[in-house]
Amino acid sequence: MSLINSAPEMVLTSTVDQVLNWTRKSSLWYMLFGLACCAIEMMHTGGPRADLDRFGMAPRATPRVSDLMIIAGTLTLKMALRTRVLYEQMPDPKYVVSMGSCSNCGGLFQYAYSVCDGVDKVIPVDVYVPGCPPRPEALTEGLIMLQKKIMQEKWITRSSDTPRLGGPVGERA
């Protein structure tokens, strides 16, 4: 207490967790992983009008430097195995946003023979964004929710092997 009172005004006090979470949520680099229709809306979200750059989000081409995977579109069974490989290639901490009905639950294609109904059958998901396809505003809201979720994380205990706080966790790969 005495430290806060005696520190100059330009000094802020916080916890380590909060600082780490703040840095993490402010530079979420997302992997360009457009699968189907939602990919176009994802590009529009990154485009001039919705402008994801204002959240410090930048598209990245490879999973090895990405923090966030936006599953944008229908996940077919042929692609599902590759998606798991890509997820495993991402460094911790890693987050997954499931964008659109198809990756949430199969959507229109849930009875199709070649479609995996829900990406959470393959990898764990942090935020589900509904819509077919979701508007850029909807995806932005989903990403803001992810940022809120990141802010609640306890850094010391977190790893991808333990369930995350405050969100649905799918089956482990």
Binding site: L77, A80, Y111, C116, V122
Partner: peptide
């Protein structure tokens, strides 16, 4: 199933 991914759809609806 396909490589361990179940293709059984948990729904009462049927195609």
């Amino acid at each position: 199933d396909y490589h361990g991914i179940s293709t059984v759809r948990e729904s009462l609806l049927t195609m």
